[in-house]
Design a protein around this nucleic acid. Structure first.
Length: 444
RNA sequence: GGCCCGUUCGUCUAAUGGUUAGGACACUGGUUUUUCACACCAGCAACAGGGGUUCGAUUCCCCUACGGGCUACCA
């Protein structure tokens, strides 16, 4: 069996589109899943729109996803260079060949070169859709393959490069489906081999339109910035238009490598909806170890003005929110009250539980300060606190809510927060007592 | 308009010539509970429509409708 070589060929005329990222993922899974090679080729024949910073952003995005490539503009390879702007000689040679054998001609009154196309039907076997037939009249027969003798157009460059780079399978979006017939004609005219084609269903927005910038975020890296985990994005993207045919939904990149196949690819377009992405992200978020969580959240926290000097403190703080947030980006706001200098700017009456009174709350707060001040430092853990405090509540025949609500509120200033024992354990005895004391004074 | 591709719960999807058409997310209700969340349990919800073929079609064929893509000297 011939070696499998797939590629992603982004145009550096904008950030990495999520659709491109998905095509890259599918291409990478397909080749690496069977010991093949995955290549990145930058299609920058449009010099007006192509920008080096976009190339950087695209590679950064693919890297963020955890994809690896065997050849590309950044690492080179045996079939380089991997930027079309650096491969003009091969296009010129192809053009010369076509011009010489009479299958192409220079259009009268311009520099543009067109391929001569006899009216005909072109059929190819799409690996996802089966046989697809197009008639050359569809696009008007002859078509432009270069703006000038040294300035090829996408169609020519793609065909020449796919052959030169020995691409065996072209896995790309359905928006290219109607270009394929032209590419095949070009391959025939140049005497080049025909790679296998697989056209992926398009990603759509919630209006069922092709996912576009104005409808939402199409920039893959914006999802990184919004605090999504790359593993979650990979898992989610893989499930958009593909399934393993069983009920598994949680699939890591390694697992995908084992089970991915084009047979599982859907034909219809899929809506990219953040709803499920959030759910997937939550699932991956909760699998993170404490140190990993801190490492991943660090940028978000620092960008929000946090100084992470005490790593074990913040790591513990983050853990209490780990199962509560949807993205890393929510963490800075979520752990605000863990700041040692947290201002406690809540309204005092909020300390009173719905079924309690001001008097009872003041009493509880006072007793809590006494009790907690007496707890040994080494017993100041969430588990131990829960045990001793619950016992204390029982012994004093108090109501749980009447005790725990003011405690949590005094420590966090929130109606919704992690449990009071957890929070207290992270804050430590000193801060806990200080905050309870302050709450007592504030309510009084 | 022309050409091409598509169409299973709201969304992502599974399965099948004969099933109570399965799962996940979302949603709803319940349990638990100091709040929210989590967890657990339960529920709601789909074969676009019409013709065929067939003993029997969601499944195969045709038509229609609807949706999408392409229709550039962008990729």
């Amino acid at each position: 069996m011939a070696k499998v070589r797939t590629r992603i060929a982004p145009s550096p005329s904008g950030p990495l589109h999520v659709g491109t990222a998905r095509a890259a993922l599918f291409s990478e899974l397909y080749s690496h899943g069977q010991g093949g090679k995955f290549i990145i080729r930058i299609e920058d024949t449009d010099q007006e729109r192509s920008k080096p910073e976009y190339e950087q952003a695209i590679l950064e995005g693919l890297k963020w996803l955890g994809l690896t490539w065997d050849e590309g503009p950044d690492i080179g390879g045996d079939f380089g260079p991997y930027r079309q702007s650096e491969r003009t000689e091969s296009y010129t040679a192809a053009l010369t060949k076509l011009l010489d054998n009479g299958t192409a001609y220079t259009e009268a009154g311009s520099e543009a070169i067109k391929l001569t196309v006899e009216p005909q039907e072109v059929t190819f076997n799409d690996l996802i859709r089966g046989e697809v037939t197009t008639h050359s009249d569809t696009w008007g027969g002859d078509f432009v393959i270069a703006r000038s003798a040294t300035d090829p157009v996408f169609h020519l460059a793609v065909v020449v490069d796919d052959a030169a780079m020995e691409i065996s399978h072209v896995i790309r979006g359905e928006d290219h489906l109607s270009n394929t017939a032209r590419h095949i004609l070009l391959q025939r005219a140049l005497g080049l081999p025909e790679p296998a084609y697989a056209h992926l269903p398009l990603l759509m927005d919630d209006q069922r339109r092709k996912l576009s910038k104005r409808a939402g975020d199409t920039d893959l890296l914006s999802y990184r910035d919004q605090g999504y985990l790359p593993e979650a994005m990979v898992n989610y993207l893989a499930l958009l238009g593909w399934s393993p045919k069983d009920d598994r939904e949680h699939l890591t990149h390694d697992e995908l490598l084992k089970v991915f196949s084009l047979a599982g690819v859907q034909k219809g377009g899929a809506i990219f909806s953040e709803e499920k992405l959030v759910a997937v992200n939550k699932a991956y978020l909760r699998e993170l170890s404490a140190s990993d969580l801190l490492a991943r959240a660090r940028n978000h926290l620092e960008a929000a003005g946090y100084t992470i000097d005490d790593e074990s403190y913040w790591s513990a703080a983050l853990q209490t929110e780990q199962e509560r947030v949807a993205t890393l980006a929510e963490l800075p706001a979520a752990v605000e009250f863990y700041k040692p200098d947290w201002p406690a700017d809540y309204e005092a009456p909020a300390l009173i539980w719905k079924k309690s009174t001001k008097e009872a709350t003041l009493d509880v707060l006072g007793k809590l300060v006494e009790f907690l001040s007496a707890v040994a430092e080494d017993s100041y853990t969430a588990e131990a606190l829960e045990q001793t405090l619950m016992q204390w509540i029982a012994d004093n025949q108090r109501d749980r809510g009447e005790t725990l609500w003011p405690m949590r509120y005094a420590l966090t200033g929130r109606e919704h927060s992690p449990g009071p024992f957890e929070v207290a354990a992270v804050l430590g005895r000193k801060l806990t007592v200080e905050r309870l004391t302050a709450a007592h004074a504030k309510l009084k």
